[in-house]
Design a binder for these strands. Structure first.
Length: 398
DNA sequence: GACAGCCCTGGCGA
DNA sequence: ATCGCCAGGGCTG
């Protein structure tokens, strides 16, 4: 039987309400892959979901494996899943203007990073993904999560030659020999964390335990919403309970627990404070002195509380915008103007072969340094142009 | 509360 | 060119 792909559908969403090109790459989820130009795909809930976006619409389609019992599109729940996964309920533009009104730093940094929306991921996937994230970088985390799916997740289908596997169940990761295998796959000390956490969830706590830690206002896919309680300084009671319970799992500390709370359990006031956010707190919010000179557990709470007070109930959403604005993978947006200038100058300078202006050389070098660490994606062209400029100017010097 | 130690990778300066 | 060092979305004992 042939692959069963539903027709492309569309949902009216502006780029300021959701920008998938930013949101899917900013370290929330580690599984999205480019399946074509401007097309992102991932296996979710037993189907491959693909997305494209233009100024007015989010376009999507689902590809089902031949063995699926129901017959899409008749009982296709994909539209509901899409709205749920992208968390489309909150009015992001309104939130951005609220955060900008209460925080000058947000106002300054956010404009180039519109449409950063907190995803509503599966709690179990978020938990394992963020256990992988400790002391790690996004490209390696993505590689590790991909390996988990490849070896332990069900195959859903293909796009071209690329196989798409869904995320493995707790049972699959709690099997015999998993820890040793993950160790061999280069997971390092996280191999043990993943295995032990999987055993705990599969054998004693159960997935229902994890799902019940969700914000009742925004439960797991398929459940009805209920009120979530009032916001207090340290976050709502349900958030604090979820955070505390997650800490009992192996490989889960305060930061990982907050990531799961925010991106898996729907607790919008959760503010994960990693080294990155800590640097932002020191640079832009006067932390790093006196009592809070280093990121101790007490400082962690103080920083998170400060942001909750400043940004309110969706503090974690605002935090994610500033976090994204500081990611190296997006740093080209901050030097875009310089980049265009550099190109113009170098083109003009090329024919006569005379020396390059001192300031141009400097600019080109600085730009190259900032972008060089980017991992394979659509920024390659830009990088190449810059490296050429640098080489030319070097040759002339020599 | 402070502090090593932990797995592994890639970039950078010497 | 090659090596040592260190940071990269931390956690455990």
């Amino acid at each position: 039987m042939a692959v069963r792909a539903t027709e492309w559908q569309k949902l009216p969403v502006t780029l300021t309400e959701l920008c998938i090109n930013t949101t899917l790459r900013c370290g929330q989820s580690f599984r999205w892959r480019k399946s074509a130009d401007d097309e992102w795909s991932c296996a979710l809930h037993g189907r491959i979901l693909s997305f494209r976006q233009d100024a007015l619409y989010l376009h999507y389609r689902a590809i089902y494996p031949p063995s699926t019992l129901h017959t899409p599109p008749h009982d296709d729940d994909t539209p509901t899943l899409v709205k749920h996964y992208f968390n489309l309920e909150p009015d992001l533009c309104k939130l951005y203007s609220q955060w900008a009104a209460s925080d000058a730093n947000f106002k300054k940094r956010a404009p180039k990073f519109a449409g950063v929306r907190i995803l509503r991921q599966d709690p179990w996937e978020a938990l394992i993904g963020f256990i992988c994230s400790s002391n790690n970088n996004i490209s390696r985390i993505s590689q590790m999560v991909h390996n988990l799916c490849l070896h332990y997740g069900p195959l859903i289908g293909h796009i071209g030659n690329e196989a798409y596997h869904d995320f493995p169940t707790p049972e699959a990761l709690a099997g015999p020999g998993v820890e040793q295998h993950l160790q061999k796959l280069g997971f390092g000390y996280r191999a043990k964390y993943i295995y032990k956490t999987a055993v705990m969830v599969a054998d004693s706590r159960g997935l229902a335990w994890l799902d019940e830690l969700c914000n009742p206002e925004s439960p797991v896919f398929g459940q009805e919403p209920k009120p979530g309680g009032p916001l207090i300084e340290g976050g709502r009671e349900g958030y604090r309970k979820a955070h505390q319970e997650l800490l009992a799992l192996h490989g889960v500390g305060p930061k990982v627990a907050d990531c799961v709370c925010l991106m898996g359990l729907g607790w919008s006031e959760s503010v994960p404070v990693d080294t990155h956010v800590w640097q932002i707190a020191q640079r832009d919010y006067k932390f790093g002195k006196g009592k809070h000179s280093s990121l101790t557990p007490a400082t962690y709470t103080a920083v998170a509380n400060h942001f909750r007070k400043l940004w309110g109930k969706e503090a974690g959403w605002a935090h994610s915008v500033l976090f994204t604005a500081d990611l190296k993978a997006f740093s080209e947006r901050l030097v875009a103007k310089t980049e265009i200038k550099t190109e113009e100058v170098s083109v003009k300078a090329e024919p006569d072969g005379s020396g390059v202006v001192e300031s141009t050389t400097k600019t080109a070098t600085a730009t190259k340094k900032r972008v060089k660490r980017d991992v394979g994606d659509d920024e390659h062209q830009v990088v190449e142009v810059k490296e050429k400029i640098v080489k030319r100017s070097k040759r002339r010097k020599a």
